[in-house]
Simulated assay, not measured.
Amino acid sequence: MKKIVIGEKIVKSFGEGKEKTKVLDGVSVEIGAGEFVAVMGPSGSGKTTLMFCLSGMETINSGKVLFDGKDLTSFREDELADLRRRRMGFVFQQPTLLKNLNLLDNIILPAQKGNEKKASALTEKAKKLMEKMGLKGLEQRNITQVSGGQLQRAGICRALMSDPEIIYGDEPTGALNSRTAQEIMNILRDINNEGTALLLVTHDTKVAAQAQRVLFMRDGNIVKEQTLPGFDNSNLESRMNLITEEIRKTET
């Protein structure tokens, strides 16, 4: 399997002097093209920081981050921003949508910068994504006129506008009820099945149980890696139990 993202001995600290705190302590990780990887661990274990470092959203103190073979540590900030816009997608717990724009314009906006496609082509693509995500007819709604699940679907539409090779998600279902959370996971799994890699940070064993591989973090390190058997709804509970047991082991 081709490796789309490689992190080598990543060290990341915040603060200076006596206030300096090492959040990542020489972490190495690989994400294959089209792979679905979940990252779990207690608060403060470094999960989100790892995701930010792998995507180039955070600089690292030492080590290396490669995206499709290119060393992100050598990129200028504007080059990193362009790379993220063109080849990566991001889905967060709270979608960062603008209140003064409707759903359709929120989805289109990030894709407009540096995009040679005409506005009409971007609008058509956004509408097709909205229809695919069950948002048809909501194009002109503002963000206060839709549900949390619909906002998250809009955030996924926005992440897909550039046909990314990988989507990074930070607790993408964390603010949703269980039914809506599973609807979002079904969408993300469909996206993954179509070839887009996923790296999801989560506390939810049900979310992690739907991945192909789970990384368990503690104190800035990956302390365990678990490859899961092929997913179907009938083995979800057994996969959840396996993850719960691994969490118990890593916390003792």
Rank of each mutant, 00 (worst) to 15 (best):
I156W: 01
L188H: 11
I191T: 05
R239K: 13
M88R: 12
M57P: 02
R248N: 14
A175N: 15
L54Q: 03
N100V: 03
G137H: 08
T227F: 02
L199G: 05
A119G: 07
D163M: 08
L198P: 04
R87I: 00
L199S: 04
K136F: 03
Y168V: 04
K117P: 00
M88P: 12
E194M: 13
K117Q: 14
E116Q: 14
E246Y: 05
T196N: 07
G26F: 06
V39L: 09
T59E: 11
S55I: 02
L109Y: 12
L104V: 04
E58V: 01
K132H: 07
K22R: 13
V5Q: 01
Q212E: 15
L215P: 10
K2G: 05
G174T: 04
T250A: 11
G46S: 09
K18P: 00
G26D: 07
S55K: 06
L199W: 06
N186P: 02
F216H: 09
P172L: 10
L97D: 07
M57W: 02
K127Y: 01
P95M: 04
Q145V: 05
L80A: 05
A81T: 12
D71L: 06
S147I: 09
G230W: 00
A33L: 13
T73R: 09
G89V: 06
T244H: 07
G169I: 03
E251R: 11
S178K: 15
L200C: 09
A119L: 13
G15I: 10
C53Q: 01
K113F: 15
G32I: 03
F52P: 00
Q226W: 00
D170Y: 11
M1H: 13
N142P: 00
R179S: 11
R189Y: 05
L104I: 01
P110R: 12
E58N: 15
K22G: 01
